[in-house]
């Protein structure tokens, strides 16, 4: 009997020592917190077009975008590297959700400005939101000299507007997909058969194959019977992202010459199958002003 009691005591003691730390860990329970998804994409561009990402409050992104000439120009054109279309852009976070952006493109000497608002953030845990959604409203102004300076020309004819809804989901740490219906409104079109409002639907995504590199794909389909006066094609871009600290380098092949969104959505005219492919890159650099204080 004595032995039994001793054995029992010993057992109780050893068990309590072994599990003491684990038991103590149980005190915290499984309290659920809201887990917001971060880094759905590496930067604010998927390849050419906008991604749902935005700079946080007081962060500024400087973005240099470059498309070279067509690769099938051959050795004479140094496979397109002799020519370039360029856009310089700035984006600034007014709040963690609202961004103002500005850019200047060499294609049609276009200035563009936009506001981007993150309406929903994907989250899990205590609050479940399946997707991130951002809204974009922008305008661009073509500043080429008037083709017919003798006739009466209106400044409003230079204006084009963009409305875009971006819906993205980060499925896991590597795979993120985005759909992006867009409407481009042109104040002036070439013929009466051309629609002023042009609707497109786009889809794209990224797959990360290392922590700092990913393959990106972006496609925009122009809904038929809207553009009549020229032969348009759908924009298709295959890209490769490399992130190095404060910079993101995006290299891509595309059939779109223009860089500005209103233009590459509706004024892409080259075909992949004809070899009219352009090499391009974006370099984005982030600057932080007045970081969070603790």
């Amino acid at each position: 009997m004595k032995r039994l009691v001793l054995l029992f005591l010993g057992l109780v003691f050893s068990v309590s020592i072994t599990f003491a730390q684990d038991d103590l860990m149980d005190i915290f329970g499984e309290e659920e917190t809201i887990d917001y998804t971060s880094a759905t994409f590496k930067t604010t561009r998927l390849t050419l077009g906008y991604s749902v990402e935005n700079p946080v409050k007081n962060d500024m992104i400087f973005l240099i975008s470059h498309h070279f000439g067509n690769i099938n120009g051959g050795a004479y054109e140094f496979f397109g590297l002799d020519q370039a279309t360029i856009r310089l852009g700035l984006e600034y976070g007014i709040t963690d959700r609202l961004t103002v952006g500005y850019g200047r493109s060499s294609f049609n000497k276009t200035y563009d400005g936009y506001l981007k608002y993150k309406a929903f953030r994907q989250s899990s845990g205590a609050k479940i939101m399946p997707v991130t959604m951002s809204l974009i409203a922008g305008t661009s102004i073509n500043t080429l000299k008037w083709e017919n300076p003798d006739q009466e020309n209106y400044f409003s004819s230079r204006m084009t507007y963009l409305f875009q809804v971006l819906v993205a989901k980060k499925f896991n740490k590597n795979l993120s997909l985005q759909v992006m219906p867009s409407m481009v409104h042109k104040n002036l079109v070439a013929s009466s058969q051309d629609k002023n409002d042009i609707f497109t639907i786009g889809a794209g995504g990224r797959y990360k194959f290392t922590k700092r590199t990913s393959i990106n794909l972006e496609y925009h389909y122009v809904i038929p019977n809207q553009i009549d006066s020229y032969e348009y094609t759908n924009s298709l871009t295959v890209g490769f992202d490399i992130e190095t600290g404060g910079h993101v380098f995006q290299l891509f092949f595309t059939n779109s010459v223009p860089i500005n969104t209103t233009d590459f959505l509706t004024q892409t005219t080259d075909k992949w199958e004809n070899g009219d492919i352009y090499f391009g890159f974006n370099i984005s650099r982030i600057f932080s002003f007045g970081g969070k204080k603790h």
């Binding site: 003491a20 103590l24 860990m25 917190t33 946080v56 404060g246």
Partner: peptide, 24 residues
Amino acid sequence: AYDHENGAFVFKVLMKSFEFEKAL
């Protein structure tokens, strides 16, 4: 948590709760 009875001392830290000066 700390248990004075047996000296056990434990921590559980949610990594996403670390806040940095820069979001990046």
